[in-house]
Write a protein that binds this DNA or RNA. Structure first.
Lengths: 134, 134
DNA sequence: ACTTTAATATGTAATGATTTCAATATAACA
DNA sequence: TGTTATATTGAAATCATTACATATTAAAGT
């Protein structure tokens, strides 16, 4: 059984992926990670990227975001925060605000709520300026 | 150019899809819609389901949700509300609460925010009871 | 009712992200 | 240094969704 504490075997590929993610606020996709790590490890495979992401997810070291409708995005910051995505270019930024998000019993319909995430949609400064082109 | 007001041609297939969606709070996937409508219209194609959903989206008559990491889900209720998903069985229920979700200028980083959506994660009553099986 | 026409339905093929699989390689630890 | 469980790789498979070409039809006007 997987657990957060379980040690993970370190490999150069994993180290490179972890290093790329460390402090990264760009919310990269698997492909972004692959392309970046590939510069240093040309032989790395997509499967390794996905495997490593799964391993990190299992250990709560990375957060898989579904906010982008085209692909999954990954966030190494697993502390509670929220996101704002540009609906045009899909750029994502962090929102560190502590919203009051309590759901009254009767609204929760018997669910045991364990997580909450606010998604904001809008246009980034760049896309906001070029609304009518592209 | 598409617009919310633009009339859409009505066909039996579309009528069936719309009827299925009307008042539907199950947040169906495209496949759910396809399987349901197929009972009455065995010849309907998946493409028609997706085309119709696109048409309805363009007219803001349906909301495409990315909350389920496996597939897109559709909600005919386009009035602002939020969602709670069971992380095990992916059942989704509506949360009608008016949270205060204002983002201060400096947090918005120049984005023009146009939408907001709170996603809650948890276990539904049924899955909560069977945590350790399956 | 009949025509016209743009919009829609269909089936099939293509796409793109993600997963599976079998064979090979290697980190960790005795 | 040898053993072994775990990771890496590349190729193929899967699954949701989209694109495309052809046939059909709703809608609007005659």
């Amino acid at each position: 059984m997987e657990s957060k504490a379980k040690k993970m075997k370190m490999t150069p590929q994993r180290a490179a992926i972890i290093k790329y993610l460390e402090g990264n606020t760009s919310h990269p996709s698997a492909e972004d990670i692959f392309e970046s790590v590939r510069k240093k490890y040309p032989m790395i495979s997509f499967t390794t990227v996905y495997n490593t992401l799964q391993t990190l997810k299992d250990r709560d070291r990375v957060w898989e975001l579904n906010i982008d409708d085209e692909r999954k995005r990954y966030d190494p910051n697993v502390k509670l925060h929220h996101h704002l995505i540009c609906t045009r270019c899909k750029n994502i930024v962090d929102i560190f605000m502590d919203f009051q998000l309590d759901v009254p019993e009767e609204e929760a319909q018997g669910y045991m709520i364990s997580g909450r995430h606010v998604e904001f949609y809008g246009l980034c400064p760049k896309c906001g300026k070029t609304k009518n082109r592209g």
